[in-house]
Design a protein around this nucleic acid. Structure first.
Lengths: 403, 403
DNA sequence: AGTATTTCGTCATGGCCGTTAACAAATTAG
DNA sequence: CTAATTTGTTAACGGCCATGACGAAATACT
């Protein structure tokens, strides 16, 4: 019958344990005293928290830290690289991938395989993926890591069902799957299974990798694996929408009475900047294997048709993003996934449209929103999937301590 | 200086006090036992919390509640209607208004005055408003109410300055004001002064009035006092944007190469559905006194030009909202402010565009997002301003108990 | 070299807070 | 009129963090 109601009492303790872990995750090794000042507790309180985490095996002590300053040097604390780990998987149109990440956020095991999943039976693909997962987890076990959960990135729409606590895949147009329970076909002994949209996970990967460095916690992340998706991150939280369908940038109107779109509307961004539309505009016939990578090659070679196609896509994307920026006032726009490869040719027209159309949202400032390409590129979704479990573990240390 | 650091200790207590107040605010009179089950604490704990709130004068006991069920009937608790109150004010283009709201959310005093504020000196307007505020607070004092804070709704952009904890008005195009410190010209003895955009406050009023009834906590609220503003509410929180400029729906592109807009862009929604554009399209010359109300009258009279103008505006609004809905997947779209008066003629074309263009965001469902007119109409910003202080008081009972 | 100073981590004490369990009060069911 | 049920209060208990003091380990000064 689940837990006997979490006492508001111990919740405070749990939150403080979690705050210690997050402090160590984001700011390298710290002493107890440094943690105390970071999170606003006393040294005594932090001592007991750290003791509990050390006993639970989530933290390890290093030798006395390099001092340089006067006073007794503190003993450095770091997250363990041997305890619980996050397992992430990615189901792409033409590949499968698995990654195991430790609590420090480092990828420790990684497997990839080229597979044409388009039109395959879900059960067969999941069986292959399960084999890869088992191999990866075996490798991880050799390094002292035990899985704390599995997160799978898929290119499709998910329905979050609050009753069963796992999400069903509603449809994945590029795979040709619809209404599938992915969790049922995956190993259940790796901890709780989460299925999530790959664009969302890519954005979260960006959030977690960036927030370590700068304090970027509100941005729009654009990717183009399936159609064109935008994940919106506000104050460090992913905006999912009332039904979980937020982020459909691909169907924002950019030429209201323009080309018909597969969705039934007219002039959607996807009809101008979607993978298929861009490839055709560049004179390439979309098909298995012919994807944005091929277009990147032509752009690098200076192919005039390819350059023009990308320029037009950039203009359309810039129009859609202008609306987005006016509406949401994000701190930054990040282009991720395989679109990131096209950034050198895509960004100029995008920036031009944004400069024209967002002066009011900028409050009269001269500088419009910065648009950058994600440094993670196509790795985002996989890293986000593995990181998802790691973050969940840091958020709820209780689960890990009991084990 | 300030407080000697709030102990994580007493924070829990404060949150629980606040949870008791919120339970009573949203679900009428409740007994201690009912509150306990609502917020997940034991009866004993709630008893001590309620005692503290009773002693502080924020709650009052009614007689034993009507039972009907077996067992000893509980004593009904309600928020006081005599203690602290929220003071709200609105600075409009052609009016000033003040409202005093008690903790139960009822408006107890209300003053309004027709004034042409366009182009007036801020100091003069603030002096008039201050007089109205003093009169309203005097009336409220007669009913046993003492102000716990003042919130002012203004039609303009605000810069939130974290250093000074009050916001400056950056610019209010319809008033002709720019870079003004409004708080400095208002009475300081009514508690903390907050200045906020009127569209945001209108959305919050909608949130608070709706959340009492249904559980609507994620929606887009459109209003058209200055340009066209959209406030986005997600999970009960207002999305402000990285620089506080979120919600500029008016400059979302709807005809990318269409009419030039005052912002320097082309084809912005405002150029098609803004007050000025719509009035002109209907053959009315915009000017002092000639506003959307005049247009509503013509529509009611069946004026063909007015109807056509509103229909075209609705189409443009529908295109912009299609993008918004695809991006954010809100549970509902609410048309507020004076646009609400035009709803009978505005909604059909809006719904038509949404139906055409948001099928994917609906996940294939047949029903598109519901679009409704706010029942609050033009009162939204004023009610939101007064409610803002009330909510702040319920969130931080400590401040009120000390007094 | 030796002492003072500074900072770190721990310990004992105390206060606050919510839970548990028991009980009196007030009402309905039979 | 008694049994059952629910409410609200009280006392004992345990958990958690703050406070203050202390030993430990480094640097700074004489």
């Amino acid at each position: 019958m689940a837990q006997p109601a979490p006492q508001s009492q111990s919740e405070m303790r749990q939150r403080n344990l979690s705050r210690v872990l997050h402090a160590l995750a984001s700011e390298g090794p710290l002493s107890r005293a440094e943690v105390a000042t970071r999170i606003g507790l006393t040294r005594a309180a932090v001592s007991t928290l750290v003791d509990e985490l050390l006993r639970g095996g989530l933290l390890v002590e290093r030798g006395p830290g390099r001092s340089g300053a006067v006073g007794r040097p503190g003993t450095q604390l770091v997250l363990t690289d041997r305890g619980p780990c996050g397992v992430g998987a990615e189901i792409g149109v033409d590949h499968l991938a698995v990654a195991v990440m430790d609590l420090r956020g480092r990828v420790r095991v990684r497997l990839g395989r080229e597979v044409r999943n388009q039109g395959s039976e879900p059960a067969a693909v999941l069986a292959t993926l399960s084999g890869m997962l088992r191999a990866a987890v075996r490798d991880a076990a050799g390094a002292g890591l035990r899985p704390a959960g599995l997160t799978v990135a898929v290119p499709g729409l998910l329905a979050r069902d609050p009753a069963a606590d796992r999400a069903r895949l509603l449809m994945a147009p590029n795979l040709g799957w619809r209404d599938t329970d992915l969790a049922a076909g995956l190993p259940g002994d790796l901890g709780p299974v989460t299925v999530e949209n790959e664009a969302n996970l890519g954005a979260l990967a960006e959030l977690w990798s960036a927030s370590a460095a700068q304090g970027l916690d509100s941005f729009v992340h654009v990717s183009a694996e399936i159609g064109i998706g935008a994940a919106v991150v506000v104050e460090g939280r992913l905006l999912r929408g009332a039904h979980g369908f937020a982020g459909e940038l691909g169907h924002v109107p950019v030429r209201p009475e323009g080309r018909p779109c597969s969705c039934g509307g007219r002039g959607c961004l996807e009809a101008y900047a979607g993978e298929e539309a861009v490839l055709r505009a560049a004179g390439l016939e979309p098909g298995p294997g012919v994807r944005l990578g091929a277009l990147t090659a032509r752009c690098e070679a200076g192919d005039a048709g390819a350059l023009r196609a990308v320029r037009q896509a950039g203009t359309a994307l810039g129009i859609a993003l202008s609306g987005t920026v006016n509406l949401l006032d994000p701190r930054q726009v990040v282009i991720g996934g395989s679109l990131a490869m096209l950034a050198p040719w895509l960004l100029p027209p995008v920036n031009r449209e944004l400069a024209r159309r967002t002066s009011v949202a900028a409050g009269g400032r001269a500088t419009p929103v910065p648009v950058t390409a994600s440094p993670l590129g196509p790795d985002g979704p996989l890293l986000g999937a593995a990181g998802f479990t790691v973050r969940a573990a840091l958020d709820e240390p209780a689960r890990l301590l009991r084990a």
